[in-house]
Design a protein around this nucleic acid. Sequence first.
DNA 1: TTGTATGCGTTATCAC
DNA 2: GTGATAACGCATACAA
Lengths: 374, 374
Amino acid sequence: MRDTQLAKTSPLRKKVSPTALRAALRVGTGQLLGGAVAKRFDRNVSMLSSDLVSGPTRSPTLADVASEAGVSLSTASHAFSGTKPVSTATRERVLAAAASLGWTGPNPLARNLRRGRSGVVGIAVGQLSTAFRDPAALAMLDAVSEVLDAAGLGLLLMPDDAEVGLPLDAVIYDICGRETWGAHADLVARDVPLVVVEGPAWPGTTFIDIDHRAGAAALGRHLHGLGHRRVATLTLEASHPQREREAGLREVFPDVELIGACPSDVAAAQQAVGAWWDGGAGASAVVCQSDVQAAGVVVEARRRGLDVPRDLSVAGFDGVVLPWLDVELTTVVQPLADKGRATARAVLGRIAGEDVDDVLLPVALRIGRSTGPA
Amino acid sequence: MRDTQLAKTSPLRKKVSPTALRAALRVGTGQLLGGAVAKRFDRNVSMLSSDLVSGPTRSPTLADVASEAGVSLSTASHAFSGTKPVSTATRERVLAAAASLGWTGPNPLARNLRRGRSGVVGIAVGQLSTAFRDPAALAMLDAVSEVLDAAGLGLLLMPDDAEVGLPLDAVIYDICGRETWGAHADLVARDVPLVVVEGPAWPGTTFIDIDHRAGAAALGRHLHGLGHRRVATLTLEASHPQREREAGLREVFPDVELIGACPSDVAAAQQAVGAWWDGGAGASAVVCQSDVQAAGVVVEARRRGLDVPRDLSVAGFDGVVLPWLDVELTTVVQPLADKGRATARAVLGRIAGEDVDDVLLPVALRIGRSTGPA
DNA sequence: TTGTATGCGTTATCAC
DNA sequence: GTGATAACGCATACAA
């Protein structure tokens, strides 16, 4: 409906944009053959366009549309936003004017300044490839994105120590196993609403959490009931979830042995538990802090000729599906989608200036086939 | 250095922000116990704050800082941006004024409007959890993010059919196996620079691609050399990479059998190849369109008692590391980080208004242990 | 080195 | 139902 072709017919449009011109002249990409190659499709076209037309291009503004339609700026605005009633006749004139000028809607930059909001929510995850390697993180991200998207908000990835010079309406800290974050002070100073998922007790933020402790304790009781007495646990970096889970486990096994911190990654878990075994240590059951870690322990155990669960019980956390793992893990299932939705809703509430409740979500023990009698 | 505490001492700051007040009053989150719970930490504080102070809060602007420092607006601006030289004495006065008012730097919204750029680059990926389940996508995303980040640009996730009412400086389409995209027309109409990775030949866009065809052909020759004659391939949805790879494979095996499209996902591949086998079909080698797919085929083959590569050769594509898979895949290695960096650089160039070359990256065959004699 | 004056493109508040 | 006018907060061209 808003057609760039029409732009060319407009008196306002002094110059055809290079992009549109390229679009008109170029049929396809052609055949790419051979190895590393760089083609300069655009050079000719660019020279052509600057030969054909001259003078600066200014894309049309709402003011242009208004004058083209013979109405005032504010009327034109109303015709689009629908904030105030506008007669059908004028609205159509305005719409037609917009189409003929190739006006593509209000400039988001200007609207943002006016509204005082950017429509963008940041999400702080560490290194992307690390953060998203765990399906649990993805499941949650998906839910966050879905809710935010429905509200017309975008989600911006914030790598580790990104300087945030960007206008963010709110920031989510999804911290599986971290305590600090570079940009935090800046954001607080700028009064950006902060929603922290499973994070440390930063003041002024909204918390979304799951009942780590209860989950870990339930897992502990399950293992104890199976007769396990020598239990070890693979840990995350020192962090809120780690402390809570460890405390839960210690309710049942006060002397649980710590295998040391490792990220939620198959290879890392293999490496960590392998080194531990190599050091002469051992246990009848290993409790992990994620299903991905647990998978790593299972893989490494098998590699060393141990059968799971006959020779070793392994438990995970999260309750994700690992299709490639042929043993169903005993795990603590957390409501990942709910967590994501709760997070996003908290963000929406904070942006709207509402009071927002902290949220603590329940977990459930799921007994699979990776744990058995000691 | 920019301390919110100082804000309270300023005459401008008529009201302590709720956030700051909360920060001052709240010590920690307290202990979260029990199941699903919502705590309303903020209610009292909010009531308190509106009792204590009244009147609208306006955060300080550069104009406030300037008048506080007794200089003009432009001088204050220069003192921060460094665009023009400013005497050390004035600069310090300005800095001090900013600190005392709690001015946290230029309002990004205003700066964006002024500059005409948002500092945000969109990346169109399908459903997030699907798109990022493949480590290949993550490796590339990581590289993109790194380069963009260094340039001070943020990366915004664009789910499938997100309406883009947001100001985007450019958009990346990373399309593994898609032909269309909802927002595409809008973006073109708005003249947003588009960089397409392995995508269809949309006009006016910059292309980053790898040599699918050469890679697939090399893989075909490898299998042919091993004596394979009945070869099948698991495909992606109809798309540019799929067509190219299929063409490459057909250079060696004109009659290659198509197993049908499936996403790059272990479970999906298992399901697809399983159904194919159940239908009575078979081959001595299966070529996949990703390593993740290949892993799925390996898993499913074993589940059915087939040994890889003795009974079945399986090849992948991408060259990622799958730590949990105990057989090293024969695969086509693509330079994922290079691809990401090239993509990001293309984005930067397009934003800068430069002519940008399309890029075609080479691939390499890596022979692992998942393929053997027919 | 500092100051003055515009404009970025909207939306919102009024009056008509 | 429509229109003038004022912000939004900053960066810059230009003058002093």
